[in-house]
Amino acid sequence: MFADFFFRALIGGIAITLAAGPIGCFVVWLQVAYFGTALAHTVLLGVALGYLLSIDPALAVLITCFLFAGCLMLLERRAPVSLDTVLGVLAHIALAGGLVALAFMEQMRVDLLGYLFGDILSIGHADLWLITGTVAVTLTAVSWQWHNLLAITIDRDLAAAEGVPVERVRLLLIFLLAAVIAIGMKMVGMLLVVALVIIPAAAARRFASTPEFMAIMAAVIGAISVGAGLMVSLAWDIPAGPAIVLVSGIFFLAGLANPVRKVFRS
């Protein structure tokens, strides 16, 4: 009864949330959501770059996100003004630059709405390969660096004193976040992609008592949100991306009702 494109959307979406869950946990713990927001603003610039160099736009977005993440990490170390301001300035320059660059390409018909709000049902075979590959690399990197990532989460100074290469681990995390943003953008669009990273993780907090369990719960909540969101969008004929985000929002609200402080008191 379901068409191929529906299954591709389902598989691609769930794959993305498997990576977004654990990465989202670190984004919540380290409070670096603003990095994600800034990275999402570079998407259109990446698309324009893709057309210009005639490479796959999804790949171009991934590369642009990596480059921007690298710039942000450099700036964080020696920001001329406050980092918050720098991020706000650079992110919007990237967005405006992307819009202008796309306007110059008159011969190209760019689906602007698709980039803003995502178009999960347009995930093709090539996209699916890029998504699953990126997710596999992300999950491998997270499990490889798990203890170091936890160490910098608990206390950065303590981690540094104990020989954890703090800057390199943080750089890795921001790169992984950039990767998740780049592939998640396809699903829910640049305006909602940060929600995809943060909301499942924030919702999972209320159901988890250890970091490992929270990372897994975040992935599970994300995956259920994708499945339920797609069903709802099909049944009621509403856009899929926002539906997915709203379902994960319901998990978050349900979590708020969960009196976790009592549950975990022994």
């Binding site: 713990w29 160490a151 608990i154 004193a161 008592s209 250890t210 975990f264």
Partner: peptide, 23 residues
Amino acid sequence: YVPQRASVDWDFPARVVDVVAQG
């Protein structure tokens, strides 16, 4: 090393034993 006022945020779900074990 014991850093100054190391404080773990409520958002981070770890039990006391986990923090000690992490060392």
